[in-house]
Simulated scan of single mutants.
Amino acid sequence: MKKTFRSVVFDQKSFEIKDGTTGMYQISDVKKVSVLNEETKFKGKTDPFLHQVLGGVTFLTIGDNKCYVGLKIKLNNDQVLAIYVSQKAVSYNTDQFKKDQKEAYQIKEVFESYL
């Protein structure tokens, strides 16, 4: 059964990342899946989700309060993949942020149903 999101498409035994670490990967190679927020200025410049943004008061006092919502996928060989749900940087706790978070958790649920 195929499950399609804008940023990732799932097939029976594989998934294709469309936004992030693009390519085809085997679901059986996935060790861990986390929903995270990546700091805007580091997207595409460092390893995926190396610079994370946490919610709460600390986050709002840092200055740039925008991030990319996505998923960090760790494979059995310790390779780290990224799936970006946010198409553009979103501000914490806005409607778009909440929508992206909701979709990210739906994607995580699909992974968990296979693991």
Rank of each mutant, 00 (worst) to 15 (best):
V85W: 08
I62G: 08
V9M: 07
S7I: 06
T4V: 15
L50G: 03
F10M: 05
G70T: 01
S7V: 04
L115H: 05
Y84C: 04
E112Q: 05
A82G: 12
L60R: 11
K99W: 05
L36T: 02
F10Q: 03
S91G: 15
V80L: 12
S91N: 11
Q12C: 11
G63Q: 09
G63L: 01
K88V: 05
S91C: 07
V57A: 14
Y92H: 11
I62M: 15
T58F: 13
E38P: 00
Y68I: 08
K31Q: 09
G20I: 06
L36H: 06
K41Y: 09
L115T: 11
D47F: 10
F49K: 01
T22P: 06
K72C: 08
G20W: 01
E38H: 05
E103G: 03
K43S: 02
S14Y: 02
V80R: 03
Q96Y: 02
G55N: 12
G70L: 08
D47Q: 09
Y105Q: 08
K66M: 10
K31A: 14
M24D: 13
S14A: 12
K98H: 13
A82W: 00
S7F: 04
V53E: 10
N37D: 13
D64W: 05
K13Y: 04
T46K: 11
D78E: 15
T40Q: 12
G63H: 09
V57I: 15
D11T: 14
N76M: 15
S14K: 09
C67E: 10
S34A: 10
D47E: 13
K98A: 12
G70C: 07
K3D: 08
K99M: 09
S86A: 07
